[in-house]
């Protein structure tokens, strides 16, 4: 079932609208005048140089950081079995080390579902993320890639209408990254979940995004918004159009990235 997201179940899914978002850590302005819209079922990739406030912006979208200015609106209808409409996937996985894989995935279901209903949902998402054989493992026994699969499984278990992914692959090695990106792209596209995907790897951005928002160096603003009009699932890393797009984005942020790299790191991100 590979539908382009624009055609996925009409009327369902969340639209995210950001209006005039600004943020500062004390005197340091990190985000300024950000306006963005993510249509239902669409994937927005957010790229920019280190320290441009990408993760802060995602935190604001997820309600984990209160913005200094502007509003984030989520609108649309949500399935009845959705337990957490806007759901986060963390760079460092944020797994509870004292819970097995199964119990980590069950955590967000515990306040809502009976034991039996939880077990059924957990089994389902573990199968979806190829984790069934690892259900009883401790997080410390898993590789980074497997841990992030658990992070994805936990996020999918609540049947989210919107996924916010904060550099989900950046703690992993290059090969694992390539494999997981394909897998996650497929899962998101098939489920038609509105997604914001923060990354500093441009190849990931052009591979997974319907839109790519390029942020400038601090204070972060939207420097460019590029559309990639082809279904996510068919995309290949070696596609010349995508490579060209990647080149274009790199040309835009190269100077910013070079400056950012020489700066003192004093902003929490």
């Amino acid at each position: 079932m590979t539908q382009p997201p624009s055609m996925s179940a009409a009327g369902s899914g969340l639209r995210l609208t950001l209006r005039g978002i600004g943020h500062a850590y004390r005197a340091l302005t990190v985000l300024q005048d950000i306006d963005l819209t993510v249509a239902p079922g669409e994937v927005l990739a957010l790229v920019g140089p280190s320290g441009c406030g990408k993760s802060t912006l995602l935190g604001i979208m997820g309600g984990l950081i209160a913005p200094a200015a502007g509003t984030v609106e989520a609108s649309g209808s949500v399935a009845d079995d959705c337990l957490n409409p806007v759901t986060y996937v963390f760079q460092d996985f944020a797994l509870l080390p004292w819970r097995s894989v199964r119990d980590n995935v069950a955590l967000p279901l515990e306040p809502h579902l009976s034991r039996a209903a939880r077990a059924a949902r957990v089994d389902e998402v573990l199968a979806l993320t190829s984790l069934t054989a690892f259900a009883d493992a401790w997080p410390r026994e898993l590789s980074g890639g497997m841990r992030q699969r658990v992070g994805i499984a936990r996020a999918l278990a609540v049947r989210p209408a919107c996924l916010l992914m904060d550099e989900p692959l950046s703690a992993l090695d290059a090969q694992t990254r390539t494999l997981l990106l394909e897998e996650f792209a497929g899962l998101i596209a098939r489920a038609g979940i509105t997604t914001v995907y923060v990354t500093h790897t441009l190849s990931e951005a052009v591979r997974i995004g319907h839109q790519v928002a390029v942020l400038s160096r601090r204070p972060g603003r939207v420097r460019a918004l590029l559309r990639i009009d082809r279904p996510i699932e068919g995309r290949r890393a070696a596609d010349p159009d995508l490579l060209a797009m990647e080149e274009r984005i790199w040309a835009m942020i190269r100077d910013d990235a070079a400056t950012a790299e020489r700066e003192r790191i004093d902003a929490p991100d």
């Binding site: 944020a94 004292w98 515990e110």
Partner: peptide, 27 residues
């Protein structure tokens, strides 16, 4: 703190975060 933020991101109640994240983490 990241684990507590994770709990909040899933809309867990304060009591649930204390019981399932803070207490086992402090154990």
């Amino acid at each position: 703190r990241g684990l507590i933020r994770m709990g909040q991101s899933f809309g867990l109640s304060t009591w649930k975060i204390v019981r399932s994240i803070v207490l086992p983490g402090a154990l």
